[in-house]
């Protein structure tokens, strides 16, 4: 557990130190808060060949700097949920907690940018720590892994402003829509370097008992393999005061093979964000 806490502490320190890169860039600065619901599916082949599916809830916080030429994002995300498998009427459930910390920086590609279209590319560092518990697996009930991905990321944004106001009628409701700045964007991140910290051969999270000291995670192994893909589609609606509302669909998938059996994970998430413009 000390190693997991150390990982998380290092992530926080790295994030705070990276946050200084956000300042000094041109563009609007936002503090983003969001929450989302979605579904997760995972399979840890070290303990079970079966996929566990369930609903998840996500809470995010981020510092965001957006401009025409560059974009930076430093964020932290906490997800939790309950996943189940009822194949052959053998119902089993697993709780799932995940902490993500990520930082990305994008630069405009002038050749692919014109008019209302803006294309940026850059790099994304993403660290994920998962904690899962499935009592049915007895001494292997606790699953912990840490996945660090350095990813290449590209983002395409299309500005779709509402130039003229219009009236919308839905049943008995009537709404005057004022002119507003809106954007549609799609980003795709592909893992270029994927580091996994996964259990050793026997998996058991108490692999060695040493009397008065019980060495948790002493059998864990670091390996460089696997892949991760994240795609995100956003609709951002800017308010008159510079703040914004954003509706996003996030897809996240990764395969962390470790040294022995792999861990597979997929998340679909619908998120609503509020962006506070502070500069």
């Amino acid at each position: 557990m000390r190693k997991v806490i150390s990982f998380i502490f290092l992530q926080v320190v790295l994030s705070l130190s990276l946050s200084s890169f956000l300042f000094g860039q041109q563009g609007s600065s936002f503090i983003e808060f969001s929450s989302g619901v979605g579904t997760t599916t995972f399979r840890d082949l070290a303990t079970s060949p079966l996929f566990y599916n369930g609903a998840s809830f996500t809470f995010n916080g981020a510092l965001l700097k957006m401009g025409s030429k560059t974009e930076s994002h430093l964020g932290c995300s906490y997800s939790f949920g309950m996943n189940t498998n009822n194949f052959n009427n053998t119902y089993k459930s697993a709780t799932f907690y995940s902490l993500d910390i990520n930082y990305y920086r994008l630069y405009r590609v002038n050749r692919l940018t014109s008019g209302r279209w803006n294309t940026k590319v850059g790099a994304n560092i993403l660290n994920t720590t998962n904690i899962r518990e499935n009592e049915a697996f007895m001494n292997n009930s606790l699953g912990v892994e840490n996945i660090l991905n350095i990813m290449a990321i590209s983002k395409v944004t299309l500005s779709v402003p509402r130039v003229k106001g219009r009236v919308v009628k839905v049943l008995f409701f009537r709404k005057n829509l004022k002119p507003a700045q809106r954007e549609l964007s799609f980003s795709l991140a592909l893992g270029a370097l994927n580091l996994n910290y996964r259990p050793g051969y026997a998996y058991n999270y108490l692999p060695q008992i040493t009397g008065s000291e019980i060495k948790n995670f002493s059998d864990y192994q670091l390996s460089v393999n696997g892949f991760r893909i994240q795609s995100k589609a956003d609709y951002t609606h800017y308010l008159f005061n510079g703040n914004a509302l954003k509706l996003s669909y996030l897809f996240d998938i990764y395969n962390a093979p470790g040294k022995y059996e792999p861990f597979h994970f997929v998340r679909h998430s619908l998120q609503l964000s509020f962006l506070f413009n502070y500069r």
């Binding site: 303990t47 049915a136 697996f137 001494n139």
Partner: peptide
């Protein structure tokens, strides 16, 4: 010996 735990393709568990 310390027992482990796992699951079969049909959903049964073992240790």
């Amino acid at each position: 010996g310390l027992p482990n735990g796992g699951q079969l393709p049909n959903g049964w568990t073992y240790r």
